[in-house]
């Protein structure tokens, strides 16, 4: 990888360089602005927001809004805070991401190393699933979940996201494994390794970069999904839906500081995943194209 990142920049003069930095810093500030507003206002008592300047730092720092958003705020009919919904989201996103990544890896392995008649068609259809808008499947999906007895449950949501995620994860892994030398698989066959052993011992250990890409992609999509959560969540709604209920509630005063804290809570997990795995993300996306 180092060979790739070296020598990709052209040398520039000092003035140009200063200009480039200036522009970059301005853009960075611009992008950070919303986060700043959210953090600052979540740390203020409510009167300071309603009576003051949105951009100002808090005069009185307080974590009260955070506590309220997490455990006591009114969500829908009950004052539970976002906590139970956060847990719903975690229980939904972890298995859905894990399963769709594993199945995608297995599909990619089969589609590249165990080719069969019509495999191109199968792959084409899976690709197609990436382009189907969510809205189209709502009604058939509701019916299927109903028949399976999974309507309004976390397992139901896992299933929905799993089905939707497989198209993408298969695409990622297939393209990654297409560049993996088939001779290695043949060598392993001669060595006596079977279908699963080759996958487990030969391919998976070198799949790190693409696995990270897939996990980030699936995690962000599933965590941020609203439509499926609102449609199929029932009483087990995920974080996004709960946040909406919190912010949109039409009764009582609008507690903006609580809303800001809740929104940050909802964004934290994806932020965390990006920061931890982000640099592998770019590497993984590059791997197939540069190494060839």
């Amino acid at each position: 990888m180092s060979a790739v990142t070296q020598d990709t920049s052209v040398s520039t003069g000092r003035v140009t360089r200063a200009f480039i930095y200036l522009v970059l810093i301005l853009f960075a500030l611009f992008y950070l602005l919303p986060l700043y507003v959210m953090v600052v206002n979540s740390l203020k008592p409510l009167p300071e927001i309603t009576g003051g300047n949105m951009m100002a730092l808090p005069r009185e720092w307080t974590l009260e809004a955070w506590g309220s958003a997490w455990s006591t705020a009114q969500i829908g009919v009950s004052p539970t805070g976002l906590k139970p919904y956060f847990l719903n989201s975690i229980m939904m996103v972890v298995p859905a991401v894990a399963l769709s990544t594993m199945i995608g890896a297995m599909n990619g392995y089969i589609l590249t190393k165990w080719r069969f008649r019509g495999d191109v068609w199968v792959f084409g259809l899976m690709l197609f699933s990436c382009f189907i808008p969510f809205q189209i499947v709502l009604i058939p999906m509701a019916r299927v979940l109903g028949m399976l007895g999974l309507a309004g449950s976390v397992p139901g949501l896992i299933l929905v996201h799993l089905v939707y995620g497989i198209g993408f994860s298969t695409l990622y892994f297939r393209n990654y494994y297409a560049a993996f030398p088939t001779e290695l698989v043949r060598a392993a066959q001669i060595d006596g390794a079977g279908f699963f052993r080759i996958f487990w011992r030969i391919l998976l250990p070198v799949s790190g970069p693409i696995a990270v890409v897939t996990i980030i992609w699936q995690f962000t999509n599933i965590w941020n999904d609203f439509l499926f959560g609102a449609s199929f969540g029932g009483v087990n709604q995920p974080m996004t839906v709960a946040l909406n209920n919190l912010v949109q509630s039409s009764t009582g005063v609008k507690e903006y500081n609580v809303h800001f804290a809740g929104a940050i809570l909802a964004a934290l997990p994806t932020l965390f995943v990006y920061i931890v795995a982000g640099r592998y993300f770019v590497r993984g996306l590059m791997a197939g194209s540069v190494k060839g």
Binding site: P181, E183, L184, R186, A187, A188, R201, I202, P205, V206
Partner: peptide, 9 residues
């Protein structure tokens, strides 16, 4: 094999 096909990991 021509490419040696050594398991990289």
């Amino acid at each position: 094999f021509q490419s040696y096909a050594l398991y990289p990991n």
